[in-house]
Design a protein around this nucleic acid. Structure first.
Lengths: 337, 337
DNA sequence: CTGAAAGCGCTAACAG
DNA sequence: CTGTTAGCGCTTTCAG
C-alpha cells in the first residue's frame, strides 16, 4: 500500500480511502490511485485492516458439519455459501465425523482465525465451553442439533414429529412388528428420531417392549450387518425404520442380499440420491438441508447486523416422500400378531 | 495478550514464547503464563501474528470447486481437508457453478485473505491473471482441469483414455450407432472426454460423421430433454455415452420414461451414488475425487515446504465399473448397420 | 532466561 | 479533499 501511495504520489490514507470506496477523494486522484494499484497488482490485506478497524469483522464464518463428503452436509454448506457469498463473506468448512475429540480442536482453530460467526453441527454433549467466545461477540448458531449448556439461535428439522409421521404410516399399512435402526443415541437427532418412533407406536397401542431398537450404526457396513441379523432372527420385523441416510443405504443392501426388498417395508430418515429409481422406490422423510444452511447463515448475518432479539429455534419442516418401500404391506400369513 | 502478561506478571514476549512453544522459558514461568491465559480465555490472533512473522503463513488454503453440493466436489474437498487438518491448516471452500464470472471474484476474495495456497477447478479459458500472485509466493494447484496460460502443478483424471476405454467397451458389445451427451465444450474435462470418445470410434473404424454429439448439458433437466430427443429421432442410437454424473442421471430418467433402460446401452463418466442398485446397474468410469483432493493438497504442502522441482501433472487413474448398462447388446433386428 | 523497542499493513482520529 | 500521527495484537531484534 505504501508503494501504491508513492507511485500515485498521494498519502497513505488516500489509497486506503480509494480501496475502501470511502467518499471525499477527487475523481482524478482516484483514477491515479487505481492505476497505481493495478500496476503493482496491489491487493489489500483484509486482516491487517481488521486489526485497527472498529468492529473488527473478518467477513469470515466457520461451518462445522458431519462430513463435507456427505450429501446432507454438502447441501447445507451450499445454503450457507449462497448467502455468505452475497455478502462477500468466506466460509471455512470442517468435518467432524461425529468425533467429539475433533470438535474443540476444529472450533479453536477457527476462533484463532477470528471468524465472525460459527455455524455448528455439534457432537459434544455440552457446548458451554463456547460461552466465553459468545460473550466476546462471536455469533454462534447451531444447526441440525440442539446445543446443551448454552443459549443460541438454533435451526433444526422436526425430527420427532417427522419420525412419528413415518412410523404412523408404516402402522397404517398394517405393520405391528417394526424395528428401529439408528445412529448413536448420544447424537441429538438420532435420539429425537427414536423418541418419535417409539412415541408413535405407544400412541397407537403397539407394544414397544418387543420392538428391536438397534443403535450405534453410523455407516453402511454397520447398518448392513445389523439388518442381516434382524432378518435372520427367529421372528423378523415386517417393517424397518432407519434414522439416517447411510443407515438406510446399508439396510437396503441387506434387504437385497436376502431378497426381501419387496417384502419388508422401509421408511428412512433423510433423502437418498436416486431413491426414486431403485426398486422399490425408497420412502423417506426428506429434510431440507439447503434451507437449513440458508436459514442458519441468515441468523448469523442478522446478529452481525445488530439484531439482539432473544435467541430462537427455527424448525425447518421436512416432507414425507412416498415412493413405495413404505407401502409394502405385512405378509398375510399370520406372522404379524 | 497484554492482559495475560500483566496477570502473569511477565513481559509480553514471554507470553508469546509460551504460546508458540518457543524454548528458553523457565518451567515455572511457563505454568504461570498458561494459567493466566486459561483464566482470561486467551486465544492468539493468528493474523496479527502473521503480520510481523517471517514467512507470513496463514495456514489457510482456498479450494474452488464446481459446487460443494456435488458429490464429486464433496469427496475432493474431503481429500483436501484430511491432509490439511493434519497440518493445522483451515480450508476455505467456494462453489463456481462453472460460472466464469464468479471465478475472479472468488479467487480475489481468497487472495485478500492471504491463503497460502489455492486449489482450483477453473472455468475461465485462461488463468494467466494468476501469474503475479504465483510470483508473490502463493502456491497454485489445479485439479480436475488443466490450466491455460500459467504453469503450475496439476492433478487430473485420465479423461480421454478412460472415455476411450468405455467407448471401446460399447463397441465391443456390438454397438455402432452411439451418441455422446456432454457438458459445454469449453470445459476442459468435457472436451477431453469427447475427444476420447470420438478418437476411439475412429480407431475402430466407426464413421463418426453420423454420431450425434450433443453438448452444453449441465444438469439433469437438460440431459433428460436431450436424451428424449435422441430416443424419439428417426434412427435412435443403440448406446449412449454420458460425460458427467448429472448428465448420466438425467439420461437414465429419460431412458426410463421411454421404457428403454434395458434396451439402450449406457456408459457414464463419473460414478453415481447407488449406481449399483438401480436396474440395470449403471456402468461408469469411476474417478477418484478423494485421491485427487489429497494429491492436490499434498502438492500444495510440498511447495510450501520448499519443494521447488519443476511443475508436474499427476494423473489419478480412474476405473471402469461394469454393472450392466454398458453390456446391453444392440437389437438384433438389423437396426444397427 | 527475560523484556523493551520497533514495526508488520492497515485504519481511526484528527489536523490541515 | 488530503495528509499526519498513533496504534490494532503480535513477532522480531537486540540488549540485559
Amino acid at each position: 500500500m505504501r508503494d501504491v501511495a508513492a507511485l500515485a504520489g498521494v498519502g497513505l490514507k488516500t489509497v486506503s480511502r480509494v480501496v475502501n470506496g470511502e467518499p471525499n477523494v477527487a475523481a482524478e486522484t482516484q483514477a491515479r490511485v487505481r492505476a497505481a494499484a493495478e500496476q503493482l497488482d496491489f491487493r489489500p490485506d483484509i486482516h491487517a485492516g481488521n486489526l485497527r478497524r472498529t468492529g473488527r469483522k473478518t467477513r469470515t464464518v466457520g461451518l462445522v458439519v458431519g462430513s463435507v463428503a456427505n450429501p446432507f452436509s454438502g447441501a447445507l454448506h451450499r445454503g450457507v455459501e449462497d448467502l455468505a457469498e452475497s455478502r462477500g463473506t468466506a466460509v471455512f468448512a470442517s468435518s467432524l465425523d461425529d468425533d467429539a475429540s475433533r470438535e474443540t480442536r476444529i472450533v479453536s482453530e477457527m476462533l484463532s482465525r477470528r471468524v465472525d460467526g460459527l455455524i455448528l453441527t455439534t457432537v459434544l454433549k455440552n457446548q458451554s465451553y463456547l460461552a466465553p467466545e459468545q460473550q466476546r461477540g462471536t455469533v454462534l448458531t447451531f444447526v441440525d442439533r440442539e446445543p446443551l449448556g448454552i443459549d443460541a439461535d438454533t435451526i433444526v428439522t422436526d425430527n420427532a414429529e417427522a419420525a412419528a409421521a413415518a412410523t404412523a404410516h408404516l402402522v397404517s399399512v398394517g405393520h405391528r412388528r417394526l424395528a428401529y435402526l439408528g445412529d448413536r443415541a448420544e447424537i441429538w437427532t438420532a435420539s429425537q428420531r427414536r423418541t418419535g418412533f417409539l412415541r408413535q407406536l405407544g400412541r397407537v397401542g403397539v407394544a414397544t417392549a418387543d420392538i428391536p431398537v438397534i443403535e450405534g450404526l453410523h455407516d453402511e457396513a454397520s447398518a448392513f450387518a445389523a439388518t442381516l441379523r434382524l432378518l435372520d432372527s427367529p421372528s423378523p420385523p415386517t417393517a424397518l425404520f432407519t434414522s439416517q441416510n447411510l443407515v438406510t443405504i446399508g439396510t437396503i443392501r441387506a434387504l437385497r442380499t436376502r431378497g426381501m426388498h419387496n417384502r419388508v417395508a422401509l421408511f428412512g430418515f433423510d433423502d437418498i440420491p436416486l431413491g426414486d429409481m431403485i426398486e422399490p422406490g425408497v420412502s423417506v422423510v426428506a429434510q431440507n438441508p439447503y434451507e437449513m444452511g440458508r436459514e442458519a447463515a441468515s441468523r448469523v448475518f442478522a446478529r452481525l447486523d445488530g439484531d439482539d432479539s432473544p435467541f430462537s429455534t427455527v424448525v425447518i419442516p421436512s416432507t414425507l416422500i412416498h415412493r413405495g418401500s413404505g407401502d409394502i404391506a405385512p405378509p398375510a400369513d399370520g406372522l404379524a400378531p
